[in-house]
Structure formats: C-alpha cells, structure tokens
Design a protein around this nucleic acid. Structure first.
Lengths: 160, 160
DNA sequence: TTGAAACCATGGAGCCACTCCAAGGTCAAT
DNA sequence: ATTGACCTTGGAGTGGCTCCATGGTTTCAA
C-alpha cells in the first residue's frame, strides 16, 4: 500500500503520515525499488490508534507514551491510568476557564446598546476602561478580594 | 520609560512588548541617543488594552482590528459587536466540544479495573479496539445514528 | 509513442503568540 | 576598572500540522 492509499484509509493527509513518521510515532516502512514507502495493515492500525487518541486531544508525546505500552504489554498499567487522569484534569480546567471567559464576553456584549459609532460603543469603552485599571464589566476591579485577580491574566492556551 | 519598566508595569515580558511592536500592534516609540526605546503613558495604556483583550482570548488580528476602532472612533460600531459575537460563538463551541471530550475520557477511565499490566488494561484495550473500528466506550460505533460521529474527529484547535 | 495527469520523494517555509538565547552595546555603582 | 543590570538585534524553538517548490515515477489515453 502506498502512502496515498494509507492516508485515505486513515482519513488524514499524506503530509500528516510523513510527519508522524518523522516524529517517531509511525515506524518507517520498507521502500519499493523506486523509493516509495510501502505500508501494511499494521501501519494502518497504528495510524487509527493515533487518530483516535488525537480525537481525545492527547498530545503526540502522550500518544507516543501510550504506543510504548502497546508494544510492551507486560509493564504496569497504572501509568496509563494516570495519563488519562492528567488529560481529564487538563480538559476540566480548560472548560472552567472557558466558562469564565464566556461570562466575560457576555457581559461585554451587553454593553453595546446599538450605538452608531465606535466612539460611543459601550464595548469599546469597557475595553478602553480596562486600560485605565478602573475595572470593567468583564474583569471587575477586585475591591473586596483578589479572587478574580489572577483570572485577568492571559489564558494559558499555548500548548493545547 | 525604558522597555523594562514598561513591561513590568504592563505585566508582560520585554520580549512580548517588542513582539507586539513588530506585529504592528504597538507603534514604534522614539529612541534615545543610545538606541533605547523611550515609551510614554500612551504606550502603557495601549499595552493594557491589548493585555485585556488577550485575557479575553482574542487573536492579535482581532485586537488589531479593535485598535483601529479606538483610533477611528467615528466609524460604525456594529463590527465591534460582531467581533465579540464571533468570539463568543467560538468559545461556546469550544466548551461544547470539550464537554464531549470530558465524557469520553471519563468513559475511558472507567475501563481500568486495577489490572496490573498494560496488556490487561481496559483503557489500552479500548484504544486499540478503536484501531479495529469496532466501536469503543468513548467513541461508540454509530449503530443507530451519526450524532456522535463527527465529534469523533480531531478537534479543530488549529486556528482558534 | 508521446504527452498529460496523478502519484511519489525531499526539504523548507508558514501558521500562532510568544519565549529564550547569543553576541554585543550602554550605563550606574562600587 | 570592573561588575552587574539593563538594552539592542536577529534567529531558533514550541505543536501539530499544512502547503509549496522541485523533481522523479507511473499510468493511462490519444
């Protein structure tokens, strides 16, 4: 099976397949006389596994760790459990932070009372107010406590 | 004010400030005789604005658009409203997709019944089963419908 | 038989929003 | 005079791809 068919069957791009090989997730297949990669069903299964894990939003590093368990089924499995748990904690933290964000955006949107120009727009006024540290609808100034304080920092989305 | 103090006051790194300048979000300040950047309070306000918008998870492109409204307050503001709405829709979609993901991971975690080796681990067996397209606890094969089908694809985190 | 289309190979750049680093210049205090 | 803290620039790295240029190979039809 050439890379095109493999990619089609695994429902991904040939570029992605080659990328996985370079990243060490997919073992390099034998080559034909012309240099073309020659895949078998094992490769397809492995790709399906990777794809499924990616659908669970796992990082390639985590998937790589899982693949080691697949090829070494005799080691203890509690690390697998911890990996999934860690994943779960990340996802739940992300949901919580996005919910905060949602309420902030909703509050912001409510500030626009169909003004006509940007100069009168409540949303923009709120955003500019934030620059003066006066507290805004979405990030109220912490008068009574500091609990919303750190939420005002930039969400750490860097490495999803 | 040199870049160090500006960055400290804006609670970001000097690298980030320079990056914003290069990205066209912060106008290049005048230089001192030694080449050092010399900032004023307007720069600090602008940075605070950017920081606040980033805390709302806006892209730099969107913030750039907003900054144009700040400097041209006479244009119509409905574009601002639409920008915030778009942001909101994105966030809500992301929450929904993460909730699906959460339940999938929970189902997966329940498969581990304290086995001892990876070979017996229910989680791993489920993940491998997915490679055989037999349906797994987290992504059940669509027997009765296709409602969970498309959710099983890789989450589109690329360009949030 | 020739030529076009479809496939394959490699290497490198681009995306986003930074972050870090190296090599070198500047300045204040000791 | 030297140390250390600051500043400058440019470039590389992050993750997980995606796209592109350039060139080789295969296959099919005219």
């Amino acid at each position: 099976m050439r890379i095109g068919e493999l990619a089609k069957r695994a429902e991904m791009k040939t570029d992605t397949v080659r990328y996985y090989e370079k990243a060490g997730l997919l073992p390099p297949p034998p080559r034909r006389h012309n240099g073309y990669r020659d895949y078998g069903t094992l490769h397809l299964e492995r790709l399906a596994f990777i794809r499924h894990c990616r659908a669970l939003d796992m990082s390639l590093a985590d998937i790589s760790r899982l693949l080691e368990f697949v090829t070494h089924p005799d080691v203890k499995c509690d690390a697998i459990d911890r990996l999934i748990d860690g994943q779960l904690i990340q996802v739940q933290a992300r949901i919580a932070s996005l919910r905060t964000l949602e309420s902030q955006l909703l509050a912001l949107r409510d500030q626009c009372h169909d003004q006509k120009t940007a100069g009168e727009c409540g949303i923009l006024q709120e955003l500019v107010a934030a620059a003066h540290d006066e507290g805004c609808v979405c990030h109220p100034a912490s008068i009574g406590g500091t609990d919303t304080d750190d939420h005002a920092s930039i969400p750490e989305d860097g490495h999803d």
